[in-house]
Each structure stands twice: as structure tokens, then as C-alpha cells.
């Protein structure tokens, strides 16, 4: 009887702390990595050459192909689809001027591959008019062969 009582007292505690830590790590990683792959809102053309430009230090202009055939391309001033739409060149110029004033002198044009070349050049011309800017065309890694 006494023996049995002492047997019952052998309790095995499993320390859950490391497991919880690892789970949180995995969660953080998956959360961030999924944003990284799903964050591409524009299907920019592929190119082998190109340098990484910090998003924080640059002003983004997004050019999307027209939603219906024959329509005009959509130009967005910002880094996502909720950014204000540019109605004319003047609004783009204002946006870029304020961006340069806040230290974001690199202008990245994120144009979809299906956008007209002339449309990109039109925006590039506006960028050229704003002093202190440099012009970048966003590209993506070509698919591995």
C-alpha cells in the first residue's frame, strides 16, 4: 500500500516553453513569407539585370493595364492598389515633388508588362521634369529555367 502511493508521485512534467517558442517562430516566418510572395500586385516584366532598391527610400508609381479593351491605363501614386489614382500629369508631378522633399528621390515605375511602352515613357517624362529624381523601372526575377 505504501509502495503504491510513492509510485503515484512520479510525475513527468513536459516543459512546453520551447515548443511554444518554436511555434511562434514558425508563425512569424509564415506570416511574413506569405506576404512576401503574395505582395506582388503588379506583374512587372522579368529581367536578369537589376539592383535592389529600398522600398522605404523610394516613391512608387504603379501603372496597370486598362481594365477594359481600349481604355486608358491606370496610374496609381503609392505602393498598393489603394493608392490615389493620378488623373493627369500634374498630380503625378505634385506627388513626386513631395516625395523628393521627404527624401524619397528614387522613383520606381512599377508597370505591368502589358502596359503600353508609350504610357511608361509619358510617366518617365514627368519624372524627368521633377528635379532631384532618378528613374527606375521595376522588374522581377525571371522564372528559373
Amino acid at each position: 500500500m505504501l509502495r503504491r502511493e510513492t509510485d503515484e508521485e512520479v510525475e513527468q512534467h513536459i516543459d512546453m516553453t520551447p515548443m511554444v517558442d518554436v511555434v511562434f517562430q514558425l508563425m512569424t516566418f509564415l506570416l511574413l513569407s506569405s506576404q512576401m510572395t503574395g505582395g506582388e500586385i503588379v506583374n512587372v516584366p522579368p529581367a536578369v539585370h537589376g539592383v535592389g532598391v529600398q522600398k522605404d527610400a523610394s516613391a512608387l508609381v504603379i501603372i496597370l493595364p486598362p481594365s477594359e479593351a481600349g481604355g486608358a491605363s491606370q496610374i496609381l501614386m503609392g505602393e498598393d492598389l489603394n493608392a490615389p489614382r493620378a488623373e493627369d500629369d500634374e498630380s503625378i508631378r505634385k506627388y513626386l515633388t513631395s516625395a523628393v522633399a521627404s527624401g524619397r528621390s528614387r522613383v520606381i515605375i512599377q508597370a505591368d508588362g502589358q502596359v503600353d511602352h508609350g504610357e511608361v515613357l509619358r510617366v518617365a517624362a514627368v519624372v524627368g521634369e521633377v528635379e532631384g529624381t532618378s528613374l527606375h523601372i521595376a522588374v522581377q526575377e525571371p522564372p528559373s529555367k
Binding site: L32, G50, Q110, A124, V127, L135, H136
Partner: peptide, 13 residues
């Protein structure tokens, strides 16, 4: 790595 955007620098018109 998220905040980097691959881009090509082009001459300004």
C-alpha cells in the same frame, strides 16, 4: 528582404 524592389535604373528623359 521584403522592402527591396528589384529595378533597373534608366536615364531620365
Amino acid at each position: 528582404s521584403v522592402t527591396m524592389i528589384k529595378s533597373m535604373e534608366l536615364p531620365k528623359p
